[in-house]
């Protein structure tokens, strides 16, 4: 006789945590997608329509999307290029715990405060410009804040995200077992070979995660690019906000939101795929 499988009560325990998240995420997603197709309007008629999708792909949209994407990608890559060697270097030096604590400060500085602090430095009469002029590198102060190239926003993002990646990379590198490194040295590997053959491949998954997380945080950013970034293009989040609140055009805003998610997902999948390829 077949026994009926006992109901697994463990699933009920998932409700408070997973249930809460799923409910709100699905709700947001549902409202967003529905509105992008003209449903779920608060005012006016609610009916299926593709007009919003036909009109969303404007010049501004692509410029803003590209701005957010570029800033996110550059932030993630520049940060890891700074963090990885720094984490390696930090393994050996005396007082590394103190260094790590100090380095963590920007992580605990609210994004907007970070933005303001850095803007101060790079502004028209900020210390960087003053020093550069005094040293004679430039005649006139540079415009780094709200500059059209978005360097200001990039610097703020890097400032804020380096500690975040540091924590991940430092502990990943620290977690490589000493006897495994010893074994490699024992078999004839010099420092460079140990780095290339042992430490890099073992910590690669962590680096992958670190890059993805910083990318997503930066890509979704609104406040930093609003305060330190250029007036045009702006971040894609800002474009969404603008459409919804300034123009009252929630449907187009929803289309932008959907595109934003699609871009994130495509990028993360592509990036993961490429990294796996490289790792093998």
């Amino acid at each position: 006789m077949m026994k009926r499988r006992k109901f697994e009560w463990g699933y009920l325990l998932l409700i408070p945590g997973i249930g809460y998240i799923v409910f709100f995420v699905i709700a947001s997603l549902y409202i967003m997608v529905a509105q992008s197709f003209g449903f779920y309007n608060y005012t006016g008629s609610s009916e299926f329509s593709l007009t919003f999708w036909q009109n969303v792909f404007t010049r501004t949209f692509f410029d803003d999307l590209w701005f957010s994407f570029r800033t996110a990608l550059l932030t993630a890559l520049v940060s890891i290029v700074i963090c990885y060697p720094l984490s390696l270097l930090m393994q050996k030096i005396p007082g590394r715990k103190t260094f790590l604590s100090i380095l963590k400060i920007p992580m605990f500085v609210p994004a907007l405060v970070a933005s303001f602090l850095i803007v101060n430095i790079i502004d028209y009469h900020g210390i960087i410009n003053i020093v550069l002029v005094k040293l004679g590198f430039i005649e006139e102060p540079l415009r780094l804040r709200n500059d059209p190239a978005g360097i200001g926003a990039l610097v703020v993002q890097i400032w804020k995200n380096v500690p975040f990646q540091m924590i991940i990379m430092y502990s990943a590198i620290e977690a490589v077992r000493k006897d495994v490194k010893d074994a490699a040295a024992n078999l004839g590997a010099n420092r460079f070979a140990i780095l290339k053959e042992i430490i890099l491949p073992i910590t690669l998954p962590s680096a992958l995660v670190a890059v993805i997380m910083v990318f997503i945080r930066t890509f979704n950013d609104f406040a930093i690019s609003k305060t330190a970034g250029p007036y045009y293009p702006t971040s894609i989040s800002n474009l969404m906000y603008l459409h919804a609140y300034t123009f009252g055009d929630w449907n187009t805003s929803a289309c932008i939101g959907v595109m934003m998610m699609v871009t994130s997902i495509v990028f993360v999948s592509f990036y993961t795929y490429i990294s796996k390829k490289i790792a093998d």
């Binding site: 945590g17 995420v25 608060y42 969404m240 939101g257 934003m260």
Partner: peptide
């Protein structure tokens, strides 16, 4: 699968969630 699902709010664009969840 659930362990991935639970990370969704971290990747969902904050502004998108703010706007649409906000209206709800």
């Amino acid at each position: 699968f659930f362990k991935i699902i639970m990370l969704l709010p971290m990747v969902f664009p904050g502004m998108a969630m703010g706007l649409f969840l906000g209206r709800m």
